[in-house]
Design a binder for these strands. Sequence first.
DNA 1: CCCTGATTCGC
DNA 2: GCGAATCAGG
Length: 219
Amino acid sequence: MAWTDERIDTLKAMWEKGMTASQIAEALGGVSRNAVIGKAHRLGLQSRPSPVKPNDDDTPKAAPKPAPRPPVESKPVKAAPPPPPAPAPAPSPAPAAAPAPAATAELRVVLRSIGPGGFVRQSPGEQQPPATPAPPRRLVPARPSPEIAGKTTLLDLNDRICKWPIGHPGEPDFHFCGQPVNPGFPYCVAHCGHAYQAQLPRRDRRPPPPLPFGGPRSR
DNA sequence: CCCTGATTCGC
DNA sequence: GCGAATCAGG
């Protein structure tokens, strides 16, 4: 299976989203988790958010860092610090206080093309790798595009819903089946029928059955 | 054991 | 370039 642009896109997006290689492999279909990792590695992606092994510090220097008191301003010692007025979190049940109407969070439909699963695609030219300090997750509507409203996107994938892709990555209405899975499988019962066909020895496999992803448009 | 990602290495 | 095999940590 070839690594098409769309698939690489999906791989990047999911990888950066913190999905495990296994999940990505499942979503992409037709590839193993090793393939995903290998590709990610080749692409130069690095494993960020993953229970990987961090500290490999070869300098076990004794640097206990006993809570260095950061000089709180050059405040002369002087008198005792003013007792911080308790925030008094009045539970104010007053519903009157109309919460700021989501004026700020107005549905800001970004004009960038939305990739598979609602990912915001990045044009090669507008990469901003380090520009992700603390992305306010969940601020953006999960489905900014009406095209995929109600559809099961990558963001909706979990262990319990069918991950069978509907459409093609890159297409605006690309989504996933979304049916409850056949317990123990990534797909619903119906799609398991497609996904898990008797696997013949390679040498006997001639007619490639329709693949969900990647394969030449088979629809 | 299960999982994870990383790396190697034959293809 | 690809990915199975292998390695290594959790």
